[in-house]
Design a protein around this nucleic acid. Structure first.
Lengths: 190, 190
DNA sequence: GTCTATACACGGATAGAC
DNA sequence: GTCTATCCGTGTATAGAC
């Protein structure tokens, strides 16, 4: 299922990451994780204290990866508008949704400060990074000086997260693309 | 728990609506529904064919209510911008999220055409209604003529749905408000 | 480190009495 | 229409052998 060279602990984390993405925390059982990782009960409780502990490791890895992916686009050369456009239009597996954002709809994640923390930190950093770029655009005169950078950044991230909702509701990525194009049309410098 | 005059079937639907909102479909068990409705197993399987059938009734009722609530704001007098602003700024229980949108993150809802249908229809109608209003704004010259009304409508709905994600991640409604204000700043007529 | 065995409550549904 | 009894599989975890 995974590379032969991958340790049991890594296979456990990887299958947990996949299942959290597909089914969320409440929808994911240790049993399903073990089957996918091709591991036994004993391995899981040896390497991790239980479902929550394993989920935490999985969420952290996913969160790190998401920020790295965003930075690869946002850190490219180009005008601020172009970099935000690049972020919004980058290829995504839209119907799968955001592996981090989807966790906010999970009651057990939201109820646990420990599980919620990496989710919060990730979205906060993403917003901060986008706000920096908006600030840069304001200084360069590409964006109107009276825009609030943090607010624009929040709108950008919200459009992406909400775009997933619309796409999954309709079973098609088209709605995601529509929302993104709508926001970009409003943001586009004259 | 509910009005004494409410029938058992109605109490079942109401408690299912609450639980779907709080915990989603996979996170909601018949047992929890029955406890909250103060009903027995027999009542539930007498009035409904099972969990999915009951959930469908609950989702339909929630969907209808959501469209009615939106229309109460969108149908008010005022300029198109003011009506959209009214929709975005209306009072919401932000941290609870959208009772319809949250279902798109539920694997069993998305996997079932029957359960997904009312979710899809509701968000599609909301978008359509907003697009009408944007069209009106374009005709009146309040919005730029080159904006695509459907795209702007998608961006508006996505900002709301994504705003819930940001708010729930951070445990505070502030992020929702920020996203909404950001979008309104971009949309505001000169 | 990994396995098997065991535990016990819960999930979702059916059967039949009242 | 509602209640209780019963069913079987699953969810999450522990115990102890190897």
């Amino acid at each position: 299922m995974y590379s032969v060279r991958m340790s049991t602990a890594d296979r456990l984390v990887e299958s947990t990451r996949e299942l959290l993405w597909e089914r969320g925390y409440v929808g994911t059982s240790p049993k399903a994780i073990l089957e996918r990782a091709d591991a036994g009960q004993g391995s899981m409780y040896h390497h991790f204290r239980g479902k929550q502990d394993l989920a935490l490791a999985a969420i952290r890895r996913t969160a790190d990866e998401m920020l790295a992916t965003a930075e690869r686009v946002l850190g490219r050369p180009g005008t601020p508008y172009e970099r935000i456009e690049g972020y919004l239009m980058r290829e995504r597996d839209v119907l799968r949704g955001c592996p981090v954002g989807r966790l906010t709809m999970d009651p057990d994640v939201i109820a646990s400060d420990v599980l919620r923390a990496p989710v919060d930190a990730t979205l906060a950093r993403l917003r901060r990074r986008l706000a920096e770029i908006v600030e840069e655009g304001k200084r360069q005169g590409q964006f109107a000086a009276d825009l609030d950078a943090e607010e624009i950044a929040a709108a950008v991230v919200a459009t992406v997260q909400g775009g997933y909702v619309l796409a999954r509701a309709s079973g098609s990525p088209a709605a995601f693309d529509a929302g993104v194009r709508g926001l970009l049309a409003l943001l586009r410098p004259a």
